[in-house]
Write a protein that binds this DNA or RNA. Structure first.
Lengths: 238, 238
DNA sequence: AAAGCTTTTGCGGGTTCCCGCAAATATTTT
DNA sequence: AAAATATTTGCGGGAACCCGCAAAAGCTTT
């Protein structure tokens, strides 16, 4: 059995390597690359279907790499191994994972045993396993009062890219006013005006982005990825 | 000689530990804590004046910890050891470092020899040493066309927190129109409108924040720290 | 099919924002 | 000190934003 490690931190890669050898004796070959693009390449070339991948990497992050890998070989099993429990990553994964694919999500802070369990569950048994920690998603006070639905999330992304209401409406196929309604509920759920001083009125748009980042609803990688998506949409539109 | 390591990643802490033992035989004791607040505590208690510290940590980041440590013992020597070359960190350090203190800034991607050199230079020789990589300041195209001056940076912070022009003017002691002039040059330097499609007009405020994050001019930790500052300012104001 | 609830949409107006223009100040150069 | 240059400030207007209100369009539930 061949396994591919996609991880740009040398120490973490080494640790993974060891854990992998301990947990899965059936592994015969371990490949290692340090970024998403190389990961796609290697998976394609080596026909590797068991992958352990970091999420945050330069240029092409783990989710984008997973998208193309799954597009080419949907039966690939991917264990994401990340520093952060950002909701943004969960949503990103949910969007690209094919119906019947196996995947997992473990935090780097998890114990070695937990990691080894996840390695076996995902790479060998093709199960789906998500670290408890990640669903917790609720550092009191900072988290949004209630989860954003998909449509709100889309609008949030566009807002964060700097689009104005009209463009969002066009891109998402809603009326202007509906976009604004989404914004209202975003402002509410993100706690845009509850925060800070009572008598201080804020710029809601910027504050919404600020809060979305602070609550880990989106992060910089997802923004960068979203901008790439926007660019292809713009190109296609003409 | 006693050294304190403030680092929340277990692997990195271990690595540091080893490098420290190799590079500085004169070190007799190595303490280790995992976050900024504990770091302040430990430095105070143990009267430690040689510190190696990660920058990004939960709750209280490296710069904030450094501020209080230096406030109490300005002769402390601190080597910052970080994953990122964000301009935001450099500015933050520049703001809190006392006139005659020794400090250093090394990237985690630096070679072991480079790290060891920096350890000796800062902790023993009390020199100032900043990794070359950090001054390089980002890859072409994403970086701001020219560096922001301090006044622009202040306004950027306030904008990023969601303050509106009037509040920024009040906080920074400028007239409304001057704030707006700062914003104009921010928009220019951050490349707010040059980017993306020609015919797409953007919300400049949000886009400015987006670009500032993308270019690593500010990052989420600095935003969180800035918000704490804002809160104390708000409290003092009444 | 009618009644009841939710979501979408348009309208309108009060704010804030963006920014050109020109006068007032401040800073630098001669 | 005068002249030249740069920065700050006020004014004003068009555009975008925020959001209440009520009609229209989609849904569930009886």
């Amino acid at each position: 059995m061949k396994v591919l490690i996609v991880e740009d931190d040398q120490f973490h890669a080494t640790y993974l390597h060891e854990a992998l050898a301990e947990a899965l004796p059936e592994v015969t070959e371990i490949f290692h690359v340090a970024d998403g693009a190389a990961g796609e390449q290697e998976a394609r070339q080596g026909e590797i279907e068991a992958i352990v991948m970091d999420l945050q990497m330069e240029h092409r992050n783990g989710i984008e790499a997973a998208r193309t890998i799954w597009a080419e070989r949907p039966q690939s099993r991917i264990l994401f191994w990340s520093n952060y429990a950002d909701d943004a990553y969960l949503r990103g994964i949910a969007q690209v994972v094919p119906e019947e694919s196996a995947y997992g999500y473990v935090l780097k802070t998890a114990s070695r045993d937990r990691l080894k369990l996840a390695l076996r569950a995902v790479l060998v048994e093709a199960q789906i396993i998500v670290d408890r920690e990640i669903h917790r998603l609720q550092k009191r006070g900072t988290a949004p009062r209630s989860r954003l639905d998909d449509s709100e999330f889309d609008v949030l992304i566009d807002l964060a890219l700097g689009l104005q209401d009209k463009s969002i409406a066009e891109r998402r196929g809603m009326s202007l006013r509906t976009v604004q309604n989404r914004l209202l509920s975003l402002y509410d759920k993100l706690g845009v005006s509850s925060d800070l001083d009572e008598h201080l009125t804020l710029n809601k748009r910027v504050r919404a982005l600020n809060r979305a980042l602070a609550t880990r609803t989106i992060n910089i990688e997802t923004l960068e990825a979203a901008q790439r998506d926007l660019k292809t949409w713009l190109a296609r539109r003409r």
